[in-house]
Design a protein around this nucleic acid. Structure first.
Lengths: 145, 145
DNA sequence: CTGGCTGCAAAAACTTTGCACCTCA
DNA sequence: TGAGGTGCAAAGTTTTTGCAGCCAG
């Protein structure tokens, strides 16, 4: 997924390619990893890129509709997004340091599909979040006693 | 899990068993299924049960700490809770009618544990949400064209 | 040109908090 | 009696929206 492809997608949907949208998309492709909307808005502002918070929210909403970004983690009252660059994957979230580890397991995906078939449920997308303590934090916590 | 057991747990933690807490707990045990905080606050109010919204939030926060309720679904900007009565399970969420279907698959759980071991990650809890269209809604949508 | 987009500010929705008063143990 | 709990209202967060003006196509 690159800028051009996204631009084509927007055109197909009769969506205009404004400066703001270009800027937001470029920033997203630069970030690559997980991000929060507020963080993104802040980073844009910090780089002198003009895009109001409302526009950021509206643009992300469109990109989500288009399947270019996903809500991958919901923790506390925050939503973390991710650009849909790689193969689908799920996440381990460290409750101590906030680190996010990606993993993909084909077996889990297959079993999920089986479960859906059993219920005649048509799956669109899923989110699997495993919350716990990462290796580094376990070590730190042990040291402290 | 019943009222008595919960009361004992509260006492162990030096938490007082106030009228409000009793009422909230009873209501939760009555609901059994999935609920939102606002919905709970409303139902309590509707039954003439006195418990301010702040108290409902504070009580649910405690019950969550104690592991008596869980955040099982995060969708849109809403959080859905569930009383921890049954064995752990995950959810299918219909994007059309909002229906929630519970499922449990031991294989998925085991693979998750394997994944955690691989990353030396200590899991505390997880949440798997599969969003899609339920069987009934698929039928309805077909009929409409 | 003009429909769609933007910025602003206000509002909505959800959640937390400070404080004075109350109540369970 | 006193630590902890409650209600209220205010404030904090996150997200959405109405509207006037702007701009890409």
């Amino acid at each position: 997924m690159n800028t051009e492809q996204i631009e084509i997608l927007l055109k197909e949907k009769n969506l205009k390619l404004t400066k703001q949208r270009k800027n937001i998309i470029n920033k997203l492709l630069e970030i690559k990893g997980h991000f929060e909307i507020e963080e993104l808005a802040y980073k844009l502002k910090n780089k002198g890129i003009k895009a109001s918070r409302a526009t950021v929210y509206r643009t992300l909403s469109i990109l989500k509709e288009l399947g270019l970004i996903n809500e991958v983690i919901k923790h506390g009252n925050k939503t973390y997004y991710e650009v849909n660059l790689k193969e689908h994957h799920d996440h381990l979230v460290c409750l101590s340091c906030g680190k996010i580890i990606e993993f993909h397991d084909e077996k889990i995906e297959k079993i999920q599909n089986k479960v859906c078939k059993k219920f005649k449920f048509k799956p669109y997308y899923h989110r699997l979040e495993i919350f716990g303590i990462c290796n580094e934090c376990q070590k730190k916590l042990k040291k402290r006693g």
